[in-house]
Design a protein around this nucleic acid. Structure first.
Lengths: 150, 150
DNA sequence: TATTGTTATACTCTATAACTATA
DNA sequence: TATAGTTATAGAGTATAACAATA
């Protein structure tokens, strides 16, 4: 019950799969985004603020943080202002090059970060998979996450 | 070379996998988000505008679109204003209930939507997988995408 | 002169609340 | 009165450009 085309039906199928996977990844990404927004809102944080906090497991110069967040350096000033105003991070000048200011989590910031990370990692997004399926998904996602340019 | 703990080592491993998968999903989601932002910027659209366009494969009342975008209805007014100003959508009042206005893609909006969808679907995110791996990933993502509340 | 971070500006997204038109 | 969409408002994210301090 299957009319085979005259050229590379297997490739066509692979292409179809690729398209569908991209669409699925998009859906899952949207859902992850939504769950993250909901998560950080419980800490009265916006998504960029929450992402900044997650990136600050270790102290990080503001410019480098801008790169990690894929945004202009000038934005980090405002984000850092708001996090600093709430006592979650502090600016610390680099003794060697005083132009550089690193953002450092305060004890309170560390607690918030730990809670957010814990919540994100226990997110319900992949409930409904068996342990074996999760292991397989893990392997495939590692490949996906590592492929291409960051 | 493996000291087994006294209680459910398999469950512990499953839990570890779940945590790692959540982290990986987060990374892949971030990357997908970034690729999408880059994609729609080539059309001089913002991510919410691009997402709105993707949702408008079929005409859709503004309130329903707000639900799909997970935002307040008042935001859709502005997004629709900007898309309409650029000739990508039009508002069409429902003859049966004239409070309802559906957003409808213009021919130009359909072309833009088609291009964006094509670009998203051919995104390089899952390059580096074999056809068999893609098929497996597809199945698992279907489960993930369908599990839990939307 | 080049780099790091800041400030000024403008635009968009977002939620809340008050409003209009329709039902 | 209830609902769909709008408007007003305020806060936040974003990029660009001009700026200060430091190198």
């Amino acid at each position: 019950m299957c009319f085979v085309t005259t050229r590379e039906p297997a490739d066509d199928q692979a292409l179809q799969d690729a398209h569908e996977i991209a669409g699925l990844l998009f859906r899952v990404a949207e859902r992850t985004r939504h769950v993250f927004e909901f998560t950080v809102r419980r800490f009265e944080l916006t998504p960029p603020q929450g992402r900044a906090l997650l990136e600050l497991e270790r102290p990080c110069p503001m410019g480098s943080l801008a790169e990690r967040l894929h945004c202009d350096a000038s934005n980090v000033t405002g984000i850092a202002d708001r996090l600093e105003a709430r006592g979650l991070v502090s600016r610390e000048a680099d003794p060697a090059d005083r132009r550089i200011k690193a953002l450092v989590l305060t004890p309170r910031g560390r607690r918030a970060r730990r809670e957010i990370e814990r919540t994100v990692r226990s997110s319900p997004v992949m409930a409904g998979l068996t342990p074996a399926e999760r292991a397989t998904l893990r392997e495939l996602l590692v490949k996906v996450a590592d492929s291409g340019q960051p």
